[in-house]
């Protein structure tokens, strides 16, 4: 039973570091522990490669993404087209590298937005013992019940032209998509964080901190949050993949990037009708999304283990 816990967990990294003889800062300690996590290190490397690939790739493989060649429709991988071609004979490798910039950026940025908003709202609601909790939970319930499609149509109709004027075509859409995806997906994070806070704020180590005169902010960020981080990491890593896929759904509503920009989610969607004859078309973008998700998840796991001083690594 939770109530019968004998010792309180002291998860504050600062406390963990203070115990060790050599004085190292908490950040360095975390990094040292993270480096020991082999899967996490390998994943950092893979993710780095993916990012490098989409940034540098287009210079190394200078094939136009919209070069239509009807004589090379739906070809499998070959020297001319390392990842094959789609049904207009366009080079999938070039398209993936171009679209990957957007997919990765959207995935990561939307994850960051959703996580920050969710953690803030969840933490504030979870700490509050008065009015903030019902009000913030009302906002969460409201966002959960909003019908997304009409809302998206409304947003695009109200803001697209203005954003386009400020950030340009692609920049405007990017800001819009990140705000939309992030803004509509923070609610599970908020609920999870709040639930963790409700339980953790009553634990002995928080009481101890309170007794020592720690401010609410300090309790929240130094003591409770590091212990509530588990579900947040899982939620935000799942968020990356759903944001990449959600982006393609948006472009099908005419809300996303112009139809000729081949993001990974869009490539996957376009490929689905040819799945039985041209599996390579779907395989490569699918694998790219999978690799991204996989590596981000393992990095998340590594971070979590590194932040948890009880874990022996």
């Amino acid at each position: 039973m939770a109530g019968s816990t004998l010792a309180s967990p002291s998860a504050d990294p600062a406390a963990g570091a203070a115990v060790s003889q050599v004085s190292v800062s908490p950040g360095r300690e975390t990094w040292r522990r993270f480096r020991r996590h082999r899967l996490a290190m390998a994943s950092t490397f893979v993710l780095g490669l993916l990012v490098l690939g989409v940034i540098v790739g287009p210079w190394l493989w200078p094939v136009a993404i919209n070069d239509i060649d009807f004589s090379a429709q739906l070809q499998g991988p070959s020297w001319a087209h390392p990842l094959g071609t789609d049904d207009l004979g366009q080079d999938i490798l070039a398209r993936m590298m171009y679209g990957g910039r957007i997919s990765l950026a959207v995935g990561l940025a939307a994850m960051i937005v959703a996580t920050i908003v969710g953690v803030l709202i969840g933490a504030l609601a979870g700490m509050s013992r008065k009015y903030a909790d019902p009000i913030l939970m009302w906002v969460t319930d409201l966002f959960l019940s909003l019908p997304q499609l009409p809302l998206l149509l409304l947003i695009i109709y109200l803001f697209r032209e203005q954003l386009k004027a400020v950030f340009g075509v692609e920049g405007g859409v990017f800001v819009l998509i990140v705000v939309v995806i992030g803004g509509l997906r923070w609610m599970p994070v908020a609920r999870l964080v709040r639930a963790q806070f409700l339980s953790l704020r009553e634990k002995e180590f928080v009481e101890a901190a309170r007794a020592q005169g720690a401010t609410k902010m300090r309790q929240m960020f130094r003591h409770i949050l590091p212990n509530a981080v588990g579900p947040v990491i899982v939620a935000s890593t799942i968020e990356v993949s759903s944001a990449i896929i959600a982006e393609s759904t948006l472009s099908f509503l005419g809300l996303g990037f112009p139809p000729d920009i081949p993001t990974w989610g869009r490539l996957l969607f376009d490929a689905k009708d040819q799945l039985d004859t041209a599996p390579h078309w779907a395989l490569f973008p699918g694998a790219a999304i999978f690799l991204t998700v996989l590596s981000i998840n393992f990095i998340g796991d590594g971070l979590r283990d590194a932040l948890d001083p009880r874990r022996v690594i």
Binding site: I238, S241, S242, G265, G286, I289, T292, L294
Partner: peptide
């Protein structure tokens, strides 16, 4: 499981 969308 969660990298592949349900339409796929």
């Amino acid at each position: 499981g969660f990298s592949l969308p349900t339409f796929f």
